[in-house]
Design a protein around this nucleic acid. Structure first.
Length: 583
DNA sequence: GCCGTTTTCGGCCCGACTGTTTTCAGTCG
């Protein structure tokens, strides 16, 4: 059975191949849109086929739905196979080279027979590209450099690696004389899990000093472009950063525009057109019925982003929601969710100490949690079978219980320490502690750590076994993925979520930037099914307690509000919930 | 190829930068 990701890749390839063939742009854009939507879906495509809701997925009409069904049933697509006889599929890779689009790819193929990245590299190295029409020595050198850059990096970067770098660059630029206002925009502002490149916006009346400083910040490996309003650099780790400098009077429209997403902005501009305005990054411009600019009609500029939405009759939409996944409709109906914030979080229910593989004592973690404003925490060290992490035997677990009781007396209510465990769901689907031990704990997390490559049926059985145990309160990092280097486990998520909804077991949004698990589309599906969530840090050291911000970002992208989240509840309310379980 | 409080046909967002031109096409976001 093909995965959503595999099918998304096929549609993306089809889009690229149609574009190379010079097909109508609306046709190939449809495939690209479908590809993007499919790769973000929280359920397997097969589940939509079963429900008969395939064509309710935005961007999936009859033709693409038919192709999805064919792919799921036969594992192949006749249309795609036929296309491959007309355009070499490997040209899709060639198009990934910076500066090479569909036209150039076709040019190299037609004129030189180049169909692969390697062939392109050889042709460029041999100086064969420079004599082609509209090419020159400069373009040839740029292509060679881009191919080298491609092999250095692996595509998108995890947000946890990008955000600190981006914030440092922004901070440095804001020290330049004349920098009035500055922010990170693009996918970073929207909080995506992985970031393709960084967009920095700065409002200033004079751009030259900013551009000059920008191309000389530390760790610049290459300057990709330098203009009056936009410059681009690549850092030594292969991350691209774009800086745009704009007039303060246009700050609102520009911030809205460069925050994206592209899909959200297309909808916003359609709304503007319906009101008789063309919208770009600098203003609303009055246009007539066929879209031509009306001469001498006054433009509307927005210094604040809220004004852009206000002008269209919308409330301000939080950046995390701007993916054209229902937020425009919700805004029009006044039904935007009141997204969870840091201020709503009063507890952290997943952390480790020196009892297992953490770096700090229980007392130390509690003090750190107090500094961060938490009212209660739960100590959840690993269980006995996880030897590599110094997992606790039943005896040590009981000793830990005593230490926690003593500490609670000592802290005199400044914080409440609950006793829990992060218990392994073992490879044979049994749990690492017996029920009578679990019954003595305040809070039980069950997690997958081993045998993650098992087939779908086994992984699903393990998750279901944990969910159906009455003492288990939370499934920790449910998919066990690492961003970007370990795929999620293969499970029947429909079955897992249904079971969680029926039993009332909570699911975790793990804030560790390597995990971010559940991811946002799954979190959104969880709350739609009424499944409680927990946003935890899984901290193994005090600084990791600050990763909460990443988990909150995921939650906000998943439309999560405070009422969906267990660790946003006051302690008595949380205890009522926890004690109602396990019976 | 998708989609519909104008539409089942005829629409489908916008501009900067680059390198090659000698006024613009291609690429990118």
């Amino acid at each position: 059975m093909l995965s959503n990701q595999q099918i998304a890749t096929i549609f993306s390839n089809i889009a690229d191949m149609l574009e190379i063939m010079g097909e109508s742009k609306f046709r190939f854009l449809s495939y690209r849109r479908a590809s993007e939507t499919i790769s973000e879906l929280p359920r397997d495509l097969a589940a939509y086929v079963e429900d008969g809701t395939l064509e309710e997925i935005p961007g999936v009409g009859k033709a693409i739905a038919d192709k999805i069904r064919e792919l799921l049933h036969t594992g192949q697509l006749a249309y795609y196979e036929k296309l491959k006889t007309q355009v070499p599929e490997t040209l899709v890779e060639v198009m990934k080279v910076n500066g090479v689009g569909p036209k150039k790819a076709k040019l190299f193929w037609d004129q030189l027979g180049v169909t692969t990245l390697t062939a392109l590299q050889e042709a460029a190295a041999a100086g064969k590209l420079r004599d082609l029409p509209s090419m020159g020595a400069k373009s040839e050198a740029k292509i060679l450099e881009s191919i080298a850059a491609l092999s250095r990096q692996t595509g998108r970067f995890p947000i946890g690696r990008v955000r600190p770098t981006a914030e440092a660059v922004l901070k440095e630029l804001m020290t330049v004389e004349g920098a009035l206002e500055g922010t990170l925009a693009g996918s970073l502002r929207r909080g995506k899990t992985t970031i393709g490149d960084v967009d920095i916006l700065i409002a200033s009346e004079s751009s030259a000093p900013l551009m000059e400083r920008f191309v000389n910040v530390p760790r610049v490996a290459r300057v990709l472009g330098k203009g009056e309003t936009k410059s681009s650099i690549e850092t030594d780790s292969g991350l691209q950063i774009d800086l745009r400098v704009l007039k303060p009077s246009q700050w609102g429209t520009a911030l809205q525009y460069f925050t994206g997403s592209k899909e959200h902005n297309i909808r916003i501009r359609e709304l503007a057109l319906a009101k008789g305005y063309s919208l770009n990054e600098s203003a609303f411009t009055p246009v007539d019925a066929d879209g031509s600019i009306i001469p001498d009609a006054p433009k509307v500029t927005c210094a604040r982003e809220e004004e852009v939405y206000e002008f269209l009759g919308l409330p301000w939409i939080p950046p995390e929601l701007r993916e054209d996944s229902g937020e425009i409709e919700a805004a029009l109906q006044g039904k935007l969710p009141n997204l969870i914030t840091r201020a709503d979080i009063v507890a952290d229910l997943h952390m480790h100490t020196t009892w297992s593989d953490g770096t700090l004592s229980i007392r130390g973690m509690a003090e750190q949690a107090i500094q961060r404003g938490h009212r209660y925490i739960c100590i959840t060290d690993h269980s006995r079978s996880l030897g590599v992490a110094n997992g606790l035997s039943i005896e040590r677990l009981m000793q830990q219980h005593e230490e926690i009781q003593q500490l609670n007396e000592e802290f005199e209510g400044r914080i409440t320490i609950l006793h829990g465990t992060e218990m392994d769901i073992k490879a044979d689907a049994t749990l690492d502690f017996p029920d009578d031990v679990l019954a003595q704990l305040d809070f039980v997390i069950a997690s997958l750590h081993v045998s993650l490559g098992q087939p779908r049926a086994q992984i699903t059985d393990r998750l279901l076994a944990a969910i159906h145990n009455p003492h288990v309160d939370l499934i920790g990092h449910p998919s066990a993925r690492y961003v970007p280097d370990r795929e999620p486990v293969d499970a029947d998520w429909d079955a897992v979520f249904d079971a969680a909804a029926k039993t009332g077991v909570a699911l975790e949004i793990n804030s560790n930037p390597r995990r971010l698990d559940l991811d946002a589309p799954y979190a959104r599906r969880a709350i739609e099914l009424g499944i409680p969530l927990c946003i935890n840090t899984d901290a193994h050291s005090p600084t990791m307690l600050d990763d909460l911000t990443y988990g909150l970002t995921v939650a906000r992208r998943g439309w999560v509000t405070a009422q969906h989240v267990l660790n946003a509840k006051p302690l008595p309310e949380f205890l009522t919930w926890a004690r109602a379980r396990g019976t």
